[in-house]
Amino acid sequence: MSDALVVDRLVVTRGERRFSPVSFVAPPGGAVLVTGPNGVGKSSLLRVLAGIGRIGEGDVVRPAGGVALMDEAHALDRTLPLGAALRFWARLDVAPESATRVAAALADVDLTELAAVPVRLLSAGQRRRAALARVVASGARLWLLDEPGNALDAAALDRLSALIARHRARGGIVVAATHQPLAWPGAEQVRL
């Protein structure tokens, strides 16, 4: 275990496909923006970094302190109120302080007022922010965000940037796959 995320000549495979090798290092406080056209393996790369994809060749060294993944699936129970759905994951991640963590994360993504609303009634953008709240509440060191800007309005995009900046200032690492231009200062661009 080190403090940085090290990706060394990593070849991601998905089904029969093998994607081209990737190498980068993200130190504490670092951010990596993975860009490239659709179907080039951005999401598959993030899944491998999260530990649930298949590695063809190469190596990944994850930093100590946990991983949080946000992909297109929000992984929240549709029938539960938003706050309870988030607390399910927070209890697994940071058991004793899950309630306060979730409340703080909801405030971070401006969803506090919707904490009692069932997840199925949320709009696409609100679900996206809820998934982001799940990542924030996890307290993980490494954030892996798949198209974090999708379905977000301008205000929510600003909030996303602010959250990323805060996470990096605390020594966190962010890797995001995106086709939108995201202006994160000092972020390394990796083009697939």
């Binding site: 999260a50 530990g51 993944l69 699936a73 929000h74 992984a75 991640d93």
Partner: peptide, 13 residues
């Protein structure tokens, strides 16, 4: 599997 719950459990080890 569809909603990503199993993915999230796997990410948590």
């Amino acid at each position: 599997l569809e909603s990503g719950v199993l993915d999230q459990l796997a990410v948590r080890g």
